[in-house]
Computed example of a mutant assay.
Amino acid sequence: MSILKFENRTPRSLQAMYDYMTDIKKTDREYIFGIGINPPYAVAEMQFIQNVYHANILHPYLQVIFSFDSNVNYDMMIIKDTCYHIGEVLLIDERQLLGAVHYKNEQNIHCHYMINSIGIDGSLYRQKYSVRYYKEKVNVILLRYNLTPIYYNEGNSQFYISA
């Protein structure tokens, strides 16, 4: 089953997270992308925005992880395209996002997103919508590519979130 997970309090610095996301043992340069940011300079550009607004924040980014169902069998460009569109869903305002598809473990293809905690307008990140809202939007993308949607657990029952 596909999974979307928000990690609010990751202990890594911007640079350490960038290094993890771009690790050549997990991905290649062609599967790293940015929205509102130039991927090779993601750390410098995010830090620049934080410095412009004198942001001294404990958690300089939000990490989101999207994991594909373990039986995904698609062309890698479709996987990257899917991850990119999910990144667009995660951005609710003018914020910087770095994404990386970790695909070298074929049993666990997933995408990491690093979203700057400070917007280019100086606003702090606030989760505007519920996690269920984001999952519904992601399911629209997954169903477009005939991929397994995200399940929703409620009590003892498990069902797809309607798209």
Rank of each mutant, 00 (worst) to 15 (best):
A55Y: 05
A55C: 07
A55M: 06
L58P: 03
L58W: 03
H59V: 07
H59N: 14
P60I: 02
P60F: 01
L62Y: 01
Q63V: 07
Q63L: 12
V64N: 02
I65Y: 00
I65V: 15
F66T: 04
F66G: 04
F66W: 01
F68A: 03
F68E: 01
F68T: 00
S70A: 11
N71S: 11
N73W: 02
M76L: 15
M76R: 15
I78D: 12
I78G: 02
D81N: 11
D81G: 10
T82L: 04
T82N: 01
Y84V: 14
H85F: 13
I86F: 00
I86E: 01
G87P: 08
G87V: 10
G87K: 13
E88Y: 03
L90P: 03
L90A: 12
L91W: 04
L91N: 04
I92D: 12
I92N: 05
I92V: 10
D93Q: 11
E94Y: 09
E94Q: 10
E94K: 14
Q96R: 11
Q96M: 13
Q96L: 14
L97R: 10
L97S: 03
G99L: 05
G99A: 07
G99T: 07
G99D: 08
G99R: 02
G99M: 08
A100D: 02
V101G: 08
H102C: 09
E106D: 14
Q107T: 10
Q107H: 14
N108I: 03
N108Y: 04
C111H: 04
C111A: 15
Y113G: 11
Y113F: 12
Y113N: 10
I115K: 06
I115G: 01
I115C: 04
N116W: 01
I120C: 10
D121W: 09
D121Y: 12
S123R: 15
Q127H: 11
Q127L: 09
Y129H: 14
R132C: 11
R132P: 06
Y133I: 05
Y133D: 10
Y134Q: 04
K135P: 01
E136R: 09
V138A: 06
V138W: 00
V140E: 13
I141K: 07
I141S: 06
L142T: 03
L142M: 07
L142V: 10
